[in-house]
Design a protein around this nucleic acid. Structure first.
Lengths: 352, 352
DNA sequence: TTGAAAGCGCTACCAT
DNA sequence: ATGGTAGCGCTTTCAA
């Protein structure tokens, strides 16, 4: 059944429209008696005021910031940290804005979200995490005059993005390991077959490959293992790596969670970290802290803060404020990395 | 400056209101020429259609589910997991609903949120995580006819809540440790001075105390350490515990994150887990999996799913469907717990 | 193809 | 204190 309107309530209570409205808004000038009658009618009809209709004459816009992202199945850590940063910034701004979370389960759903947001959803601005925009999609947002910024992995786009340099991160990690003397360095990353085609793992891999190339290490594809983003998959890939005729002396995992999977698997196999094999992660999460994991720090929360800051500035009217600078990625050295066990391995490999 | 309206656009383009609307909605029966003129006017005026006004005649309600919670400063794990469960359920429902996140930074802010949500924000339903409702607040929600459910720690309330039995969890954890032979069992929890006064830590502590009492262990307050909910604070408290003349042989932390802090601190002090000291957490997050942490599983994600399921059923019209049952909490045994090192410690303690 | 006009459900101002 | 009424900005008929 359709919801009752104040008209129905008014009729039922035998009063005028305005009176009902006054009761609804706790207006003082209503007699206790009338108020009682109206309240009664409201209860009887199960009347619930239409929030949209209230908003129109009041001219109070909905104060929402949209955050559009993918389903954070396993790697919700990065999303959560970024959301936290945004939330913090939003609160610091003190404008009473709220975050509306849109989660796109597929590229089609993502596209649907974009049009629905521009057409029907009153957001004051939009932050897009991890997902790219086609030129058409960008055009749609622009022509709708919705300020928007992207976060993560949108290097070189024509629209505002807080980009985290994943390639640099992969490079830095691999160079860190080669500097320790490692030559057989494995990479564990996300498989590239997910429908969204996130470029993060790919970018980190590219950096890793560049680093190896730079120091004259031949890229051994048997050392490159891709799987689901999660503990279990990484553990399985690690077992595969260890089972190789010539196992790697170091593993660079594209996330702390995956690095944790490596460490778990190695522990099960009674291999010591870093004595037998070094492990590096990525993100510098609490997980890295508690595992003593050497990792790449990428300022997740800050990326959310900066993105929100930027967006708010755009909403304020600055056409395109200067992009905020995210600190460079850096290796955080802890306990899971060390020199390869057998010195001379390098020569052994080279003569094979 | 106020935003232009279609009226302005119509005047500027020299057309009628209806035509502008048709262009806005990609109605086919508009001549290319007219469309062009209108589009031009729109661009010139920087016109952006008012989403609220569009929604009114279309009678399309905003399809939002509100999620109201506190700032997830450190313990965002549980919030993220629950959100993930809700999101999953929402998507399974396939009704195109979205989550709006409201974060209350203080009890006052919380109250403000509640009134603002009931008065101005078109949410179809509300999920409240971790926060309680006063009878008045409950009344406000009820009289606004907004379906709502609570998640976590609302045992014995008169409104729908997916409650997780924290006291039982604390009890089960402590009993698990006493069964292993531990007598000196420390508790690390949240301090109770936060403004919201979350009862979670308190409830787990109560269960812990009951368990100790039940097996005849005197509750030693020096073994009860409260601090901020986070890695660092837990690490510090652990150092204090180890520095005691008679340190505990086991630590029960009220969260996996805090347990991670314990483990980190113990590693720094070159103490082995569980050989020198056992550690238990709570939540069974990925963190626990990665650390091989013995913990109490409380089905975080599921709680979000069930809460959303329940809410959706209420929105569908069922007045108050039967509350979904959350599986009981259970200990997940992993690698960080074992028997206390020196057998006979029990007697030693008892004779002191 | 287009313009005019009648709502959408509510608020707020005008009288009374 | 209360009823009537003119909008809020847009969509969607209905004629033309």
């Amino acid at each position: 059944m359709a919801n009752a309107t104040i008209k129905d309530v008014a009729r039922r209570a035998g009063v005028g429209l305005g009176t009902v409205s006054r009761v609804l808004n706790n207006h003082p000038r209503v007699s206790a008696d009338t108020r009682e009658r109206v309240l009664h009618a409201i209860a009887e009809l199960g009347f619930r005021p239409n929030a949209t209709a209230r908003r129109l004459p009041r001219k109070t816009d909905l104060r929402h910031i949209g955050v559009l992202t993918h389903p954070f199945v396993k790697n919700y850590h990065s999303i959560a940290e970024r959301l936290r940063g945004m939330q913090r910034e939003l609160e610091a701004a003190g404008k009473g804005l709220e975050i509306v979370l849109f989660v796109a389960s597929s590229p089609d759903h993502y596209a649907a979200h974009l049009t629905s947001i521009t057409q029907n959803t009153p957001v004051m601005g939009l932050i897009i995490i991890d997902l790219d925009l086609t030129p058409q999609q960008e055009q749609v947002l622009r022509s709708a005059h919705i300020p928007f910024v992207g976060i993560n992995n949108f290097v070189g786009r024509s629209w505002p993005c807080v980009s985290t340099d994943n390639e640099e991160g992969g490079y830095v990690a691999a160079r860190f390991l080669t500097a320790l003397g490692h030559r057989r360095i494995a990479y564990i990353g996300d498989n590239l077959f997910d429908s969204f085609g996130f470029p993060t793992s790919q970018a980190r891999y590219t950096g890793y490959a560049r680093a190896l190339n730079e120091v004259g290490i031949h890229l051994n594809t048997r050392y490159v293992k891709l799987g689901d983003h999660g503990y279990e998959a990484a553990a399985r890939l690690t077992r595969e790596l260890v089972a190789l005729a010539q196992p790697p002396t170091a593993i660079f995992a594209m996330s702390d969670l995956q690095a944790a999977g490596c460490i778990g698997a190695l522990r099960e196999m009674k291999l010591r970290v870093p004595d037998d094999i070094s492990v590096m992660g990525y993100d510098d999460t609490e997980l890295a802290l508690s595992l003593g994991l050497t990792t790449v720090r990428q300022h997740l929360e800050l990326s959310g803060q900066l993105g929100m800051q930027w967006l708010l500035a755009m909403i304020e009217g600055q056409e395109q404020p200067s992009p905020p600078a995210l600190p460079p990625v850096e290796v955080v050295t802890r306990l899971t990395t060390g020199a390869p066990r057998k010195l001379g391995v390098r020569d052994a490999e080279e003569t094979e």
